[in-house]
């Protein structure tokens, strides 16, 4: 039922709106202040608790491995006799789509090359290149998807098998009991997931704007000015408010498929028209090193290294782990919804292996092209990358024929990725804030759209991608402590299951 004119103001909704609006206003009025405080908090947290964050990411990977090989693996996410809603190939395709974020478009070359710059000080160039790919895979691979996968598993298990809502408050009440303190903690979980989703998506909105404007400025040969920022930002706001105000049916899914298709075509194009065997060698070398060394690397912090290596480790690997935690309630709801009826075993194997393999392929192609430029050509890409991370992908495309077409396609795909994820975030936020209403009214969705826009504007004012990442990280720090509680809830409930 749609209740167009009636939105029940619950304490959760009121507090969530208040806190998000306050953060947005703070960022718009005093962006430097917000950025500086966030950077400070993140530095202190990463220095003191970096070990715990890595331990947790690895721990979640081991929980996932344990659950998929244990007797619990045969439990279905739904009643015992239910069938999966989607065919396995369709499901895997949707998992790829969940993993394909706008970040891949821009960090495909930039990230491996940045790691290479740090690592070549300690290793010879060949070793540094394969290590750089390894670190990129570590940041985007099994650990990332174990975080998403386990959170999604908790959501799916309690929603479909235990008949609760898809909110993070559900596991606590169901597995620990309905007490005053569990209800208070559960309420806090919902509030914190709203804030993490809102700030996280606003951050990715801002980063999308920066990246798209860099692309447009290069393509049209115009100045990369704040006027251009305003144009891109306003276009994006219009694009995501329309589908939030009125239902477009499967229109959003089609747009997101289109973005996915463009990105895939781009990868295939580069693989075919680029140095194909060189890239396949990069993929196979990177894959082997990753699969055999990934487990110990997940526990490695850079503590014994020099200060700037520690900084590098915190800015990338630790930051990514926090980032995956920040987005886990959002991506988790999506993955849970498409996975009803799967067994825990096939769920975990699908969710962790499929997107990781995709990332290995993706970064192998893009990173491989970056290394080809360094080792076989004049190495101009590395220089561009040192100056402007978000310009690297476009500089790479300029090396290839039809570059106007491919650069335009990249800009369109990036735009679609950002808009579709903001729309989906608007829905999810409205759903959580209304206590799990699967069909939140357009009015409340639009309110969340406006707040995402305001938060996005605040992030744009902050201006520096590094500071934007810090703000996202601060909003997600609570999840370092929420996720293990959810895992305990899941393990407690699984123990009550009657499995042979």
């Amino acid at each position: 039922m749609h209740h167009e004119d009636f939105v029940k103001i619950t304490p959760l909704l009121a507090v969530a709106l208040l806190v998000s609006t306050a953060i947005a206003l703070w960022g718009i009025i005093d962006p430097e202040g917000l950025g500086a405080i966030a950077a400070n908090i993140v530095a202190v947290q990463f220095n003191s608790r970096g070990w715990f964050i890595m331990l947790e990411a690895s721990g979640l990977l081991f929980v996932a491995i344990y659950l998929s090989i244990s007797r619990f693996g045969s439990i279905r996410l739904g009643p015992d006799d239910c069938e999966p809603e989607f065919s396995t190939p369709a499901w895997i395709a949707m998992l790829f789509a969940a993993g394909m974020r706008v970040g891949l478009l821009f960090y495909g070359v930039a990230e491996p090359l940045t790691h290479f710059d740090t690592l070549r000080r300690f290793f010879d160039d060949a070793d540094a290149a394969s290590f750089a790919l390894f670190i990129t895979y570590l940041n985007w691979g099994f650990h990332a998807w174990a975080i998403y996968g386990v959170v999604a598993l908790v959501i799916a298990y309690f929603a479909f098998r235990r008949g609760r809502t898809v909110l993070l408050s559900a596991p606590l009440i169901d597995a620990i009991g309905d007490h005053r303190w569990t209800r208070a903690l559960a309420w806090l979980f919902d509030l914190l997931s709203i804030i993490a989703i809102a700030v996280g998506l606003a951050g990715s909105l801002a980063m999308g704007v920066f990246q798209i404007q860099t692309g447009i400025a290069g393509l049209l040969d115009v100045e990369n000015s704040s006027f251009l920022t305003a144009v891109v930002f306003i276009a994006m706001c219009i694009a995501f408010v329309i589908p939030l105000r009125r239902d477009l049916g499967d229109g959003m899914a089609r747009l997101s498929n289109m973005a996915m298709l463009i990105a895939l075509s781009l990868m295939v194009y580069l693989l075919v028209f680029g140095p194909t065997s060189y890239l396949m060698n990069a993929i196979v070398t990177g894959f082997g090193r990753y699969v055999f060394d990934v487990l110990p690397a997940g526990f490695a912090t850079a503590e014994f290294m020099e200060n700037d290596v520690i900084d590098w480790f915190q800015n990338w690997t630790l930051n990514y782990m926090i980032w995956w935690l920040a987005w886990s309630p959002f991506v988790g709801v999506f993955i849970a919804r498409i996975s009803r009826g799967r067994t825990i075993r096939e769920f975990l194997i699908g969710v962790i292996a499929a997107p990781t393999l995709f990332s290995i392929f993706w970064f192998g192609v893009f990173g491989g092209l970056g290394f080809f430029d360094i080792f076989r050509l004049e190495g101009a890409l590395a220089e561009i990358n040192r100056n402007r991370l978000d310009a690297t992908t476009f500089a790479l495309l300029e090396h290839f024929p039809l570059d106007v077409l491919t650069r335009t396609a990249t800009i369109i795909a990036a735009f679609l990725f950002v808009v579709t994820s903001v729309v989906s975030a608007g829905f999810t936020l409205a759903m959580i804030a209304t206590g799990g209403d699967e069909n939140p009214s357009p009015r409340i969705r639009t309110v969340w759209g406006a707040i995402l826009g305001a938060l996005g504007l605040a992030m744009i004012f902050i201006g520096d991608i590094k500071l934007v990442r810090s703000v996202i990280a601060v909003s997600a720090i609570a999840f370092v402590f929420i996720v293990p509680v959810l895992v305990i809830c899941l393990l407690r409930s699984l123990k009550r299951e009657n499995v042979k």
């Binding site: 003191s48 608790r49 509680v485 305990i488 407690r492 123990k495």
Partner: peptide, 30 residues
């Protein structure tokens, strides 16, 4: 010195939190 106190305090909170997780896992089923 100030930084060290913060560092120790933040880590003690993590240890306490791990204790909380163990307590949570040991609670009787509802």
């Amino acid at each position: 010195m100030n930084g060290e106190i913060t560092d120790t305090a933040l880590n003690l909170i993590v240890f306490a939190y791990v204790g909380f997780l163990i307590w949570l896992a040991q609670r009787p089923q509802p």
